[in-house]
Amino acid sequence: MALLLPLLAAMVVCSYGSVSSLGCDLLHNTALPSRRTFDLLDQMRRVSPFLCLKDRRDFRLPRRLVDSGPSHKVQAMSVVHEMLQQTLSLFHTEHSSAPWSAPLLHELRTELHQQLELLDTCLEQVMVEETSALTAGDPSVALRKYFQRIRLYLEEKKYSDCAWEIVRVEILRAVSSAAKLQERMSHDRE
């Protein structure tokens, strides 16, 4: 955990940017996931992860999607989109409001929703440019299975505070991987 926070901070700083008013170039000008998402997830910490070590689980984040990364911009954006969509869905469950303050949870949901709206616009523009990119495979299937494992875990643990803390740390890791993918795609396009 101690190594995770500096890594997250470095990735966020590298990927932080703003939207270009002349067009949508997600991989160069937009920070998805945003620094605010990382900050909110960090603020949501209520239980020490060290108290929850017995509850740890490997949710098997689809490493091939985020480590090697898709070869097309539209595929990379699809990975980030699915990650954000599934994260938003996870934090919209009725049990998600129990461990955190309502205003903080609302702020996270709003942030994720805004990022998804921007990403939807960007995806439409990029898909026109790269019409054949999604024929290489849909990355969303593996990500949906990953998030289903997280949901089943929460259910199995009866949505305990420790279960939510483990999931919060896992989501930080997943969002961090999405940010790394975005950064890598940005460098590949330069």
Rank of each mutant, 00 (worst) to 15 (best):
T121R: 12
T37I: 09
Q43I: 03
S48C: 09
S71K: 12
L40G: 02
T37V: 14
E117I: 02
H72A: 12
R64V: 02
R109V: 01
P70I: 04
L116K: 01
L104E: 05
D120K: 14
L118E: 15
T110A: 07
L119H: 11
S97D: 06
S78K: 11
C52V: 09
P99H: 08
L116C: 02
L61D: 01
D55T: 06
H72E: 12
A31I: 03
W100V: 15
Q85P: 08
T37Q: 07
L51W: 03
L84F: 11
S68V: 07
F91Q: 02
E94K: 12
M83V: 05
E111F: 00
P49E: 06
T93G: 02
L51M: 10
F50Y: 11
E94S: 12
D67W: 01
L41R: 10
Q115N: 07
D55H: 09
M44A: 05
K73P: 09
V66R: 01
T110R: 13
V74N: 06
L40N: 05
P70Y: 00
D55F: 06
S96D: 01
K73C: 13
L53F: 11
Q75P: 04
T37G: 09
H81L: 03
F50K: 09
Q114P: 01
A31N: 09
G69M: 01
L108A: 07
S89N: 04
S78T: 15
H113F: 08
R45E: 13
Q85T: 14
F38N: 02
L112I: 06
L61S: 03
L65G: 01
H95M: 15
R36S: 09
R56W: 11
E111D: 11
W100D: 08
R45C: 13
T121N: 07
L119V: 14
H106S: 13
F50P: 00
L41M: 15
V74W: 04
S34A: 03
R36D: 10
V74H: 10
T110I: 06
M83F: 03
Q86N: 12
H72W: 08
R35H: 07
P62F: 02
R45A: 13
W100L: 14
L108K: 09
H113W: 05
R36Y: 09
Q43R: 15
D58W: 05
L61W: 03
R35G: 08
F38Y: 04
L41A: 07
F38T: 04
E107W: 00
R64E: 01
Q85D: 14
L41Q: 02
E94R: 13
P62A: 00
C52M: 10
D39F: 14
D67C: 01
L61K: 05
L90Y: 08
V80A: 12
P62W: 00
P33V: 07
R64A: 00
S71A: 11
T121I: 08
T93I: 10
L51H: 10
T93V: 06
A31F: 03
L116I: 04
S71D: 12
F91P: 05
R36M: 11
S96K: 01
Q86Y: 02
T110L: 15
L88D: 06
T87D: 10
P62Y: 00
S96A: 15
R63M: 02
C52K: 10
L116R: 07
D39R: 12
